[in-house]
């Protein structure tokens, strides 16, 4: 006969039910760690979403800066007066015998001429011109044995302009890099989130 009171509130005793309880004890709930509540994981999602877009924007901005500087460099008119015109015009015009230039196989000289507009800004004493025949320079005659080539005045001017553009570009890139680095700092992101 089953003891209903023991089944209901464990008062008294019932050997059959106790036997079932003892056998099923192996399946009893054992304390586990409670699940991590979702609010503890919010900060991870915020951090991940904020780290991609600023980098993309910074990259796009850097590309735009480089492109615009290049465009300005190539679209500038050749005859426009610049700060370096004075320096260029002060260089005396002279003829260089090609025999002195390493890597160029020619016996004729190179005539260096400036545009007429530059003479209005700077007046300097110039060496008398010598009439020379047209120069024919063969590009393939530059040999790899002489990597250091003496530059003419125009080439030097172009080289300086290129270096100036590169320095401006590098400074802009440094600003962009610092901005991106500041955004990606974890402490900053957390502070911003708070």
């Amino acid at each position: 006969m089953m003891n209903d009171e023991y089944l209901w509130n464990k008062s008294g005793s019932d050997t059959e039910i106790e036997e079932l309880e003892n056998a099923l004890k192996a399946y009893r709930y054992q304390e586990m760690i409670e699940p991590c509540t979702p609010m503890r994981a919010v900060s991870f999602a915020e951090k991940r979403s904020s780290s991609i877009w600023p980098f993309g924007f910074a990259l796009a901005f850097a590309s735009a800066v480089v492109f615009s500087l290049s465009a300005v460099w190539f679209l500038l008119p050749a005859g426009a007066p610049t700060l370096t015109d004075a320096a260029v015009s002060s260089v005396p015009i002279q003829s260089l015998p090609l025999a002195d230039v390493p890597g160029i196989e020619s016996t004729t000289a190179i005539e260096i001429s400036r545009p007429e507009t530059r003479r209005e800004f700077v007046k300097t004493r110039q060496a008398p011109r010598t009439k020379t025949s047209p120069v024919r320079v063969v590009a393939k005659t530059f040999s790899k044995k002489h990597p250091q080539v003496q530059l003419t005045a125009e080439e030097k001017y172009a080289y300086d302009q290129l270096m100036l553009a590169l320095s401006i570009t590098s400074s802009k890139l440094k600003i962009v890099k610092d901005t991106v680095g500041q955004i990606d700092k974890p402490d900053t992101a957390i502070e911003r989130y708070r």
């Binding site: 509130n9 004890k25 709930y29």
Partner: peptide, 10 residues
Amino acid sequence: MRLVEGMTGP
């Protein structure tokens, strides 16, 4: 609940 978990009826 009664036999495995050991809970009483109440």
